[in-house]
């Protein structure tokens, strides 16, 4: 499934718009996680808008592809993608984190298009694994994607699933690590060093693929390679930048979960709207 230059340009434009709308929504409620939403933008957008077999008008299709946003704090970028696919009304973004909203602070399975409630870190990959096991048992060819944060890999439970998925030869499961190297209190090296991350996954018998997580073309090739691998699950270690797209947010732990002041929103939009 190669990405044509025209389609890549369209998706890039979509990513630019998504970044703007996500920052506006987080600014609007003065609460949320800008950094991780921006770093996972291309990963989610490519999957939802290009690769996944999903239909906003038929959200319960048993053979639909599934995505679990294990790093649930990037919910606003997930919601933008679900709105674009017709799962949610276009104006729902204005209700983010507000009372009586479909759009909870962290993803809720009660929201159309959201496949699993997430927020507490370290158990999303397990749920994705369960989906892959169930689909395999039912003879479905649907694929399951689990999008993990790097800080999330501090959780021991995440590694339980890393250990178990190869046992069940889940070639229909692809994990993606949004490897932006920054968590809430600081860099991953400062808070809890991850060491040789690709080697760790490989040691657990995953098919490991590395790429630039902001390059739609590289991501596209990585997902092709993951789909082609039939021996078991694949992981894409996607090298990303926290806060990608807004110069003063990039690589800064301070922007993990910070309300956006008016002047910073204006500055961010100035960069993104050119």
């Amino acid at each position: 499934m190669s990405l044509t230059p025209e389609r890549a340009a369209e998706l890039r434009e979509l990513c630019r718009k998504f970044r703007i709308d996500v920052l506006k929504a987080i600014h609007g409620i003065q609460s949320g996680h800008p950094g991780g939403s921006l770093s996972v933008c291309e990963i989610l957008t490519l999957l939802y808008q290009e690769r996944m077999n999903i239909d906003g008008k038929n959200p319960d299709d048993p053979d639909r592809d599934r995505l679990v946003l294990c790093k649930g704090h990037a919910a606003p970028m997930l919601y933008k993608n679900l709105i674009e696919k017709g799962f949610l009304p276009a104006d729902s973004m204005d209700t983010l984190r507000r009372i009586d909203s479909l759009l909870q602070g962290h993803p809720s399975i009660h929201t159309p298009g959201v496949e699993m409630s997430t927020g507490p870190l370290g158990i999303g990959l397990s749920a994705a694994q369960g989906m892959a096991m169930g689909l395999k048992l039912s003879g479905s060819s649907a694929r399951v994607y689990a999008i993990l944060g790097d800080g999330e890999l501090n959780e021991g439970t995440a590694w339980e699933a890393v250990m178990s998925a190869p046992k069940f030869k889940l070639s229909n499961l692809t994990a993606v690590v949004d490897y932006n190297r920054v968590q809430l209190d600081g860099t991953t090296d400062e808070i809890m060093p991850l060491g040789d991350l690709p080697a760790k996954w490989a040691a657990f018998n995953w098919n490991v693929i590395e790429c630039d997580g902001h390059s739609l073309e590289e991501l596209s090739e990585a997902f092709d390679a993951a789909e082609a691998y039939k021996e078991g699950p694949s992981v894409i270690i996607a090298h990303t930048v926290k806060g990608r797209g807004v110069s003063f947010m990039e690589g800064k732990a301070a922007w993990h979960g910070k309300a956006i002041p008016d002047e910073d929103l204006a500055a961010a939009l100035k960069e993104l709207e050119v």
Binding site: P62, V68, E115, Q129, G130, M133, G134, S138, T157, A161
Partner: peptide, 15 residues
């Protein structure tokens, strides 16, 4: 913990 969360995923596929 992995077992219980895996069951969550299985349940969403009708199991």
């Amino acid at each position: 913990a992995n077992m219980v969360a895996t069951a969550s995923g299985l349940a969403t596929t009708g199991k």
